[in-house]
Amino acid sequence: MFTNLINTFVLAWQYTLSHADEFILALREHLFLVTISMIVGILVCVPLGIWTARSKRIATAALNTVNTLRVIPSLAILFLLIPYLGLSSTSALIALIVLALPPILINTDAAFRGISPAILEAARGMGMKPQQILFQIEFPLAAPVILTGIRIAAVEVIASATLAAFVGSGGLGIYITRGFALYDYSILFVGAVPVALLTLFSEGIISGAQKLIQYPQ
């Protein structure tokens, strides 16, 4: 069984080399889907999270909305969008953005809520303007928790971007669906292994960034 596994890896490697152009295109499509949906997720959820942290009523509304969206599987969102948006990367992007929203929003909200009021009061007492407080006090203090949210979102988005292959938006998922269709494990590995590596890579980068900006408690 073990030699079998190694054999499959070798075959997968050979397949990657012989389909190098296609692989690079798939990788680029995958990274495109992930990058765009993460950027949109961050641009929407970080400001929204700052807002919800300041108002209880908006917090309940926004958090409940994203949590409700979250219970619909990404596969279902993807399939629902196809009749309206067609077999396009827009459908895949929207499904991925919906997936990225909850962890980022929940963590941003929690991070800003968790800042001690005494610190904010001290900043105000020192005569800092609200804008200065936001960028020089609150953001640095909240950053590690926000980054945790971004890390969770990135893991889910990278893995789920494989579903995009179902709707013809490419990405590394094409090798998974192809491997399943041809019942060939080596092709499946060509898709699955890079996805797992990408996830671990992004986790490493984000937790490295987190350690860099972590304030000593």
Binding site: V155, S160, L163, I176, G179, L188
Partner: peptide, 11 residues
């Protein structure tokens, strides 16, 4: 957890 769900099931 990082392995895509379709891939894990196929394996």
């Amino acid at each position: 957890y990082t392995i895509p769900s379709i891939a894990l099931m196929i394996i």
